[in-house]
Design a protein around this nucleic acid. Structure first.
Lengths: 215, 215
DNA sequence: AGCAAGAGACGAGACGGTCCGTCTTTGCCT
DNA sequence: AGGCAAAGACGGACCGTCTCGTCTCTTGCT
């Protein structure tokens, strides 16, 4: 009888792991989700397919780890990546800028996100990851835990700071507030329902803060 | 040399078309995007594969037409379907409720959308369509033209009515406003980042209308 | 009018191709 | 010896194209 052996992490090849994650991210950026295959990733990484299947349950899991690899800067440096996708957190806690001017800080962050969405090198892998997450609840849970969750905490932390400075009401539901600011970006990006520009980012921030009712 | 003949729409079988669209929608609901195949749709519809490939360029195009088929009520009746996905429009123009109370009307619509997202029979096909749209710009364009566009017009029309009643400022950017209200729903639904409840829908409407700054 | 020929959609499914996920082989490094 | 790694063989699922034989509708000749 065959043991469904848990692989021995101690013997794992770091070189192969790095090559796989890099290849996955780059391939996703070059060929897009539809043509992204495990065989392609293995070939580009110079790795046997089994090495991928030994350590990851699915293509989507590899892609998620590729994003984690980037954001956690596995042996690399922090380089300020930012996006609605939830980049930039190392478990320690990436923080949003806080100059005391909430509106300006939010515009800065949203503009950076818009810029990332405009770069096919990030846009395509992020779409691929989003797609995988959309129809794999298990992957979505891991995504929420490792990438989106920490990023959302950073966003909420910035809003909480504004609350404590009296710039936002104490009773504000921060989960709703975060969705209100970042949800519109996600919508425009995914559905390409309109131009995704700095002006749009600014308008979202202004309208979210003051509300539709505001003059 | 082989003529890439344009099929003769006059000879098209309406029975096959209907069977294909119905099978596509139902299969998407039953097996999900990952396991949705053209062969599966053909088999379920009792149709040759070529009949699908003759009339549609891709699986996603079939799925989009399946949604159009539902919403335009091909030979069927209007039954009040509603969703952020953009259901319910027949080119004539589906309208959002207008009781004069904008906040109540919006809550009603968002709650209905939340209910649809909670039903796997709509949730899964809608996810499948969303995924197809996410990595096929041509399909996204057709989606915008046929489903999302008309729905967005209905949303904007409702907001415009509120503007004319003096309930919303004249200078409000309606595209931004629509994204601000429906974007958060899309975000929660797609990423499953939190419970998608009536209470959430209400909170989004209230917060969007009054803004984060409001007490 | 009646009928044969043609065109084209249809259901069915064969076909070569790609990719899946598993399994086997062989080598390497503890 | 044990376990990971690279390479790739393997059966299976689908892809998208193509070829059948059948059918229905249109066309044109008688």
């Amino acid at each position: 009888m065959r043991r469904r052996t848990t692989p021995d992490a101690g013997r794992r090849s770091e070189a192969s792991r790095h090559a796989i994650l890099t290849a996955a991210f780059e391939l996703a950026g070059e060929v897009g989700y539809a043509k992204l295959s495990v065989e392609g990733i293995a070939a580009r990484a110079g790795v046997g397919k089994q090495t991928i299947y030994r350590w990851w349950p699915s293509k989507g899991a590899v892609l998620l780890d590729a994003f984690l690899h980037l954001s956690e800067g596995d042996g690399g440096e922090s380089d300020g990546g930012e996006s609605d996708g939830g980049e930039s957190d190392g478990g320690g806690g990436m923080a949003l800028p806080d100059t005391g001017d909430l509106e300006a800080d939010l515009k800065l962050v949203l503009r950076a996100t818009v810029d990332e969405f405009a770069d096919p090198r990030y846009d395509r892998p992020l779409r691929a990851l989003t797609i995988e997450i959309t129809n794999d609840p298990a992957l979505a849970a891991r995504y929420a835990e490792r990438l989106d969750g920490p990023m959302k905490e950073a966003k909420k932390a910035r809003l909480r700071a504004a609350q404590e400075a009296g710039q936002l009401p104490a009773g504000l539901d921060l989960d709703v507030a975060v969705d209100l600011i970042w949800g519109p970006l996600l919508s425009r990006w995914l559905r390409r329902s309109g131009p995704l520009t700095h002006a749009y980012a600014d308008a979202v921030v202004e309208t979210a803060l003051r509300g539709l009712y505001a003059r």
